[in-house]
Amino acid sequence: MLEGWPPPILDPAGPYAWPVTVLSWVLLAMAAAVLLVVFAALWLALFGGERARQRVGGTRIVWLGGIVFPLVVLTALLVYGLTLTASLSERIRGDEMRVRITGEMWWWRVAYLDGDGQPVIHDANELHIPVGEPVVLELESADVIHSFWVPRLSGKLDMIPGRRNLMRIQADEPGQFGGQCAEYCGGPHALMGFVVIAHEREAFERLMAARRAREAGPPPAGDPRGAELFASAGCAACHRIAGTDANGLAGPDLTHIGSRKTLGAGILPNNRGTLMGWIGNSQAIKPNNRMPPYTMLSAAELRAITAYLEEQR
């Protein structure tokens, strides 16, 4: 979920975002200054005295204002912009932590990769990173073009079918950073958010270790009635919970749903009420998303499934 205020572009949280913030302020100042010059010239032209109007009226001002002045400003900006672009897109070393994020209509598949590029931990709509280290994201798409954007950490980069784009992000302090799909991807494109959570190093290691163990080990016991309903209502056809029979791949992985910060791809805070509401009729919350409404389930049944899912942490 994006924060809104202060504008995230102007509130950077990592080394791939703050140079752009500096650039933004420089550009805003440049725009204001040039605007002032143009307005001053226009003001003199319209309301100035005879002498001032004579100065502004003539080919000389076209040369000065229209050619020389922009030439100087633009040359400086061009060099600044090019060098900054180059430094922000420095070659990736290869020893960074890697995560593959796949844009899907209208959520994000997340897979933490090992050294060989094999996925080891599966998740969705949420990314955990360690503080102070660059993390390389492999951006892919499963269907149409999406664009991955977490403004406080970096600019955006598109996810294009048939291609793999690499992006680096890094957070310098622990916290949550909202993201959003930026390329129109049809239907509920507006409701396709994302969350990055940065942890201190040890906390991050602990989390990853726990999750690796969870991928390999048995699932938490959970509410047995909920587990049964999860299977019988058809949830497992689309969702996976590691270590259970539920291994559907069409929808988000629910192995860690209980600990997720948001629901519906970054659009709702995750709590018992919202989770129940989402399962019961997600179409009312995020119209045209791919999950059918489960209005045939009773409140008790929904409660049971919710209780079961809350255990999946």
Partner: peptide, 9 residues
């Protein structure tokens, strides 16, 4: 200007 990227990037 057009050639600048070859030098500056």
């Amino acid at each position: 200007w057009q050639a600048a990227p070859a030098v500056a990037m």
